[in-house]
Design a protein around this nucleic acid. Structure first.
Lengths: 320, 320
DNA sequence: TTAATTTATGAAACGCGTTTCAGAGCAAGG
DNA sequence: CCTTGCTCTGAAACGCGTTTCATAAATTAA
């Protein structure tokens, strides 16, 4: 393996000149330029990017933490991030956390150790003050509605989005409404719960804990929910399902068990995945790739801390 | 930012000793050890991992190239890789290529420039000799049936898997059989075509080009296929669909248009995604996470070049 | 008691590209 | 003719952790 000094020697110039040539800097005589390139060929020189990273103090890599890679919500988010990264000449380091705090910490440590220039949290378990602490080492961007003057946030206003879903159901005459969620903690989930609570209060209905289905992430969870729903003595007439995949599971299982949707049970999903369209699921469309894109932009250029809510959109189809 | 030399000065030891302490090497007097840790605290020392990478000539990062992040086939593969990486203390650099050769080259360049210790190709567009060329810079692992004594391959025997699907259809009496594929080139696709051709020859049927549907990756493509199928003067009675998502699109669209499955059209999918189970799609189950896991193992330890086919399994449900 | 080990430590070299700064040479401006 | 102001170069410093090698000191084995 030859290095820049070998090139300098062979081309009879200084390493500074070699560096200039390799990086296309001006102020190098044409003949020296040629001599350098010639030497590069001759010695089959390969740059060691780690030396560049060390020297520049920058890597052009962004860390992305996400709980599950194989979930369309996060896949689409990641896709948006990846497209933006590609467009800006950045690479991505992907950390799958399963919501384990120590994995999230690993991602933050990459920032501290200068392995990445910034970190995007698509979701998290770690307490907020940890993120703030690591903010000192570089940009940290989250995808949730959290106002903090040190950390940028690109998010969906999940309170309003959930509210929109509730409104639709209420407007259609539903009063017994439940919901499905991935997990209870997490600020996005909390916002949704608040919307749920407030909307029910609006119509004078109490919150029924049994109608809140947790651990809803995949299709199988929807199947589980529908079965539980069927076995309830007092069951809701409508469900807000914070994820199309779960909504699809519910709907397909309902079909199998002869439960008519939306007559016996109205379902509204979230995300507007292709699956939702195929199954004609009424859903709240979220601009996931765009969240990813804007979060990325903020991760590489966090000069101004921003908190930006992106718009959602109700897509009415056949399940409400 | 303090560095190891500042620590050495403050602790009144040499940098070598500091390094030993930080890495828990033996042969350091307890008092010096304490002095070093004390200095580390005092100066709030943070290691610069880029210097470590430079010095060690290794980064504990593996590059993963995949055409589409947001596709369950690749998501599941990536998930397997990510789990294995996590278990082995490695990080992943993910490169989404959209099958563009220049993006694939970027991934290979990371290997050349020592940014990653190895590269896994879950799929590719680049010519084989390019991979071979870059093999000199480190392990390159592919997920396709390709025998080359320099590059390891962890794959499904797509010839046999496709054959298995065809056999089932033929056994059920089908003779007019078409298939759906993501793209025609790509060695996995070629193997499948060969199986298709050979199985048809077996029953004395010709290959009908019109019954080969390309660009089938997403649900929408399945919708498109079903519509095209419906408008055919002479249409196949069965389709081998190399991806459950597309199979689902076909089935859901068939339902909408009143086409009965499997009576009017038999469909066999691939992968066995949760969606296939939910829609009761007969499919060939592929061990995607396991491919990812084994490919990863090979990427970090490619002492022996191997070519390993992993087993698939026919899962009979209701669409054939 | 002497030889052979083991423990402990630091200087220096190694991995390697970037960038600053001083200085030289040369052309354009006044 | 003299002063700015480019153009062009290289020495040296900078970013920073790891590892080898020589050496000294302390044990243990013989």
């Amino acid at each position: 393996m030859s290095n820049i000094r070998d090139i300098a020697k062979l081309a009879q110039v200084s390493v500074a000149t070699v560096s200039r040539v390799l990086n296309n800097h001006p102020y190098v005589k044409e003949e020296k330029r040629k001599a350098v390139w010639h030497a590069v060929q001759q010695l089959d020189y390969q740059q060691n990017i780690n030396a560049v990273h060390l020297s520049k103090g920058k890597t052009f890599v962004i860390g992305v933490v996400l709980p599950y890679i194989n979930h369309p919500y996060f896949s689409r988010l990641l896709e948006g991030i990846a497209d933006a990264a590609e467009a800006n000449g950045y690479k991505l380091m992907v950390i799958q956390t399963n919501y384990q705090v120590d994995k999230e910490l690993e991602a933050l440590d990459m920032l501290r150790l200068k392995q990445v220039d910034g970190v995007i949290f698509t979701s998290r378990s770690s307490p907020w003050n940890i993120l703030k602490e690591y903010r000192a080492y570089g940009p940290v961007v989250v995808c949730e509605n959290k106002m903090d003057n040190q950390i940028s946030a690109i998010y969906i206003d999940h309170y309003r989005a959930f509210q929109r879903g509730m409104e639709l159901l209420i407007q259609k005459g539903h009063r017994k409404i439940g919901y499905c969620i991935g997990r209870r903690k997490g600020s996005n989930s909390q916002k949704r719960h608040e919307a749920y609570r407030d909307q029910l209060a609006e119509i004078g209905e109490p919150v029924t804990e049994k109608w809140i289905f947790e651990q809803c992430l995949h299709m199988e969870d929807g199947v589980r929910v529908l079965r539980e729903w069927r076995d309830m003595k007092e069951a809701p007439t409508a469900l807000v399902v914070t994820n199309d995949l779960v909504a699809a599971g519910i709907i397909l299982e309902a079909e199998k068990l002869g439960v008519s949707i939306p007559e016996s049970l109205a379902v509204i999903g979230f995300d507007d995945q292709p699956l939702a369209k195929a199954l004609r699921i009424t859903t709240i469309r979220l601009p996931l790739p765009r969240i990813g894109k804007e979060a990325f932009q903020q991760a590489i250029q966090d000069l101004q801390i921003i908190h930006k809510a992106l718009p959602f959109e109700l897509v009415e189809r056949k399940t409400v």
